[in-house]
Design a binder for these strands. Structure first.
Lengths: 344, 344
DNA sequence: TTTATTTGCGTAAACGTTTAAGTTATTCGA
DNA sequence: TCGAATAACTTAAACGTTTACGCAAATAAA
């Protein structure tokens, strides 16, 4: 009943043309020489009849859907859903709406989603994709529609990125442990070619080397959680001289923490621990764990700004060389100094 | 370059009318008497030219956007983002896309979002709203566009609901504690008129009464986390005979767990604990905590089914009386029997 | 053979906008 | 006083679909 009042209805009600109505709706009354009197009457009708523009029609006409497609592994992961919220709110300010999808790291699903996005005529893409999906998103990158990638850098893809500075953040975390008196610091990561993991490892390596200490790295060929926990356990048992551990990803931290549920709880209990990626759990866990927190708000803000710039400056932006923005993470220190057998 | 091939292009390429093309696109070739030969030629052109329908145009014409508006407090809450993912995937199967927004429990923001949804001509609404926003969503309920509410029941609103059976679930949890030998079971909730909290309390009360035991209830006037933790602490100290506690909401469980970070860790350590709402943290926390897990998949499935039914059967569905679906939650038992000074 | 159906396809209107290109009436400079 | 500029509107096309009609040819019925 309320849904259906259109520009034409307004025009008829006032006794004018739809053009005039359109102009005042779009705030072009002055510019287009609509008299104040007519403009006022139209505005009155708009309010009284409760007119709401049909964005579908507008989009069809203007060729801009004002929709941004957002694509990640799994939208229910805290990092992604947090970012989704931030981005959604910032986009709303500029009249854009976000649509989300989870690829589940599946190739077919990904092309399917991208297809749907194209059919819905999204104005831009925002995506964090795993390696192996380069070609699917790659096809979009030269095209009409702007693309901004985040979270993970894909070496093959010459695109615009908004990233956490993994090298810097890990270096800072490592330095933090050193500053607090830890001597033998291990780094637990996965065996991969993912750029962000390599950067994290490099951050650790360089700081350790510069300090004259010895690197102690465990690279896990990741199969499943159980398996990883076992490898971590063996590693820690073998290197009993370690007094601190850095986990290079949140799931590794979790796998490590699972040791505390078994009889092996001493293994981590007595050490300084730093987790890459902060999560709620860490506020509660004992021993308390320092964490590298991704700057979600900043990431969201940079993505939106980059996008707006690309959306605004059509051709100019297209010829510009891709931008890689590296944002510094925050180190959430939960316990810093090293008592006898300490934690951080 | 790829973006712009339309029905008309196909028609010109084949040398036929756009009508014919439209028919084969929509699989109405047979029905509309398009010869197999023409249909094949058209199909060939569609594939070769890489035609993608413009869903905006289609929506404008058909009056169906195939978009569902989803509205919650905060999409980054695990329960909501998990549900979002589940619902998104199920909706995709039926050609629907979800758009999400977070109200932040703000009245103005809520009306704003609903306005945007109307402008985008969503086909249906899915929402979980806090009390106080009844009127904003209430205006939609009689209207053209189907509405399904979930998670929280608003007594004033005669709408379709998909809910977790709070009464049943809490009763089951309480019974579980009794069955495992706990004698003095407390219930910690907030002082509110929220229906779901009242139902949970009722579930506890009835089972306790029936068992002949004594009710021990703490109703917190919730201000902030710190304050709640203090009240919980005082309560537990005062009633030292308690051997089990049920927290009526996940944030209460968290506030309770914060006791473990202070010197008062003994207070919960020695007791059986059940949390309403499960969350990742609980898998790691010690003492381990049994939890009531909301059936996310089932909720998503029921929402979609209900929606599809309402979308299909226009007028018939509108006259039907509102449906309230109550889904049973799952009790995730992490430690059940009561040793001397036990946990559950 | 004539008439009625079925088959196969095209014309054109409509969905609700935006906007280029008119049209008329008014003001104005010289 | 008159053409030109300006002010105030309107007409109509276009965006890419779907779909009610219309029309002719082929087939079936009479």
């Amino acid at each position: 009943m309320q849904q259906k009042v259109s520009i034409k209805d307004i025009a008829n009600h006032v006794g004018t043309s739809i053009t005039a109505v359109s102009f005042v709706i779009n705030g072009k009354a002055k510019e287009k020489y609509i008299s104040d009197k007519l403009a006022a009457k139209i505005q009155k009708a708009i309010d009284e009849l409760g007119y709401q523009p049909n964005l579908l029609a507008r989009s069809l006409r203007t060729g801009k859907s004002n929709i941004i497609g957002f694509l990640v592994d799994d939208i229910s992961k805290p990092f992604f859903s947090g970012l989704a919220r931030a981005i959604d709110e910032k986009a709303a300010v500029h009249g854009y709406k976000i649509i989300f999808s989870s690829t589940g790291n599946d190739r077919e699903r990904t092309t399917e989603i991208l297809n749907i996005y194209q059919e819905r005529r999204v104005d831009a893409y925002v995506a964090a994709l795993a390696e192996g999906l380069e070609t699917e998103i790659g096809g979009l990158i030269g095209g009409e529609t702007p693309v901004v990638l985040f979270d993970r850098y894909l070496p093959g893809l010459d695109a615009d990125y908004v990233l956490t500075d993994n090298f810097w953040s890990t270096a800072a975390a490592t330095q933090h442990l050193i500053d607090n008196g830890f001597e033998n610091i291990a780094f637990i990561t996965i065996d991969t070619r993912q750029q962000q993991m390599l950067d994290r490892l490099r951050g650790y390596s360089e700081v350790i080397d510069r300090s004259g200490k010895k690197q102690e790295v465990l690279k896990i060929k990741y199969q499943d959680s159980e398996h990883a926990t076992q490898l971590i356990k063996a590693f820690l048992q073998k290197h009993s001289h370690l007094d601190a551990v850095i986990f290079a990803a949140n799931y590794l931290t979790m796998d490590g923490l699972k040791l505390s549920r078994t009889s092996d709880e001493g293994l981590l209990q007595s050490k300084g621990v730093v987790s890459f990626d902060d999560f709620e759990l860490l506020e509660f866990i004992r021993p308390s764990i320092t964490a590298v927190e991704q700057p979600i708000e900043a990431i969201a803000e940079n993505i939106i700004q980059l996008l707006l710039k690309k959306l605004a400056g059509g051709a100019t932006a297209k010829t510009a060389k891709p931008l890689v923005i590296n944002l510094q993470a925050k180190l959430n220190v939960r316990q810093s100094s090293k008592p006898q057998n300490a934690q951080t």
